[in-house]
Design a binder for these strands. Structure first.
Length: 205
DNA sequence: GAATAGATTGTCT
DNA sequence: GACAATCTATTCT
């Protein structure tokens, strides 16, 4: 049994959300559950910067039971449910009172492939294991029971991993957000096959 | 590969 | 009652 990697410290999360979103690329997401441990390299993220960001749940200062943890201190998980069937996993960043978060959109599976494949009903070799925000939550068994849990201790955390070339592009699924739709606040590892949608054009970093 | 429709429910107005 | 930080299947080309 290999020793688990060590969690990145809270100071990693206590920085501007765009910095954290970019530096998450290549980090390992680790989840120890009763069924076993799963790990994946983060290859795609998006930054949400409320209250000014119209695409963020905290836009305009909205503070509800659903998004409450976004308003709390950095280094906690924000997990919510959309479209009646999918979960989304986020990392709360910056500082208490700043409702900023990083959405994890895609992983490259690293450990626990059989468990992920079983949870997803897909072959271990399939990109559909973790190439989307809803898919990775299912593969890693993340749901609202993880909302508000600390990422610096316990069974769910980030750890250092090898990073590759990063590109940035427009965020996905927020066409209602006006000018905020245009922001290049999505970060992904260039050429990685698990990235959910290939960025258009050439947006180097 | 791209475009489209349908699924399905928590959350807020 | 409307809508959502998505996924899947289907129907094209």
């Amino acid at each position: 049994m290999a020793r688990l990697p060590r969690p990145v410290p809270q100071s990693f999360y206590e920085r501007p959300v765009l910095v954290v979103a970019k530096e998450c690329i290549g980090k390992l997401l680790v989840h120890r559950s009763a069924a076993g441990t799963t790990m994946g390299r983060i290859v795609e993220t998006e930054a949400y910067r409320g209250p000014e960001d119209r695409a963020a749940h905290s836009f305009g200062g909205r503070r509800t039971p659903r998004n409450e943890v976004m308003w709390g201190p950095a280094g906690f998980a924000y997990v919510f449910f959309v479209y009646g069937l999918h979960h989304q996993f986020n990392l709360v960043t910056t500082a208490e009172g700043k409702p900023h978060a990083v959405l994890v959109r895609a992983l490259e599976p690293v450990h626990g492939l059989p468990l992920m494949a079983d949870r997803r009903g897909q072959a271990e070799s399939s990109v559909h294991l973790t190439n989307g925000p809803g898919k990775l939550c299912q593969a890693m068994s993340l749901d609202r029971s993880h909302n508000g849990v600390p990422l610096t201790m316990g069974d769910l955390f980030l750890a250092d991993g090898p990073s590759g070339p990063i590109e940035r592009s427009r965020r996905i699924g927020i066409d209602y957000a006006g000018e905020w739709t245009e922001k290049l606040w999505r970060f992904s590892e260039k050429g990685n096959r698990y990235v959910s949608r290939r960025p258009k054009g050439r947006q180097g970093l």
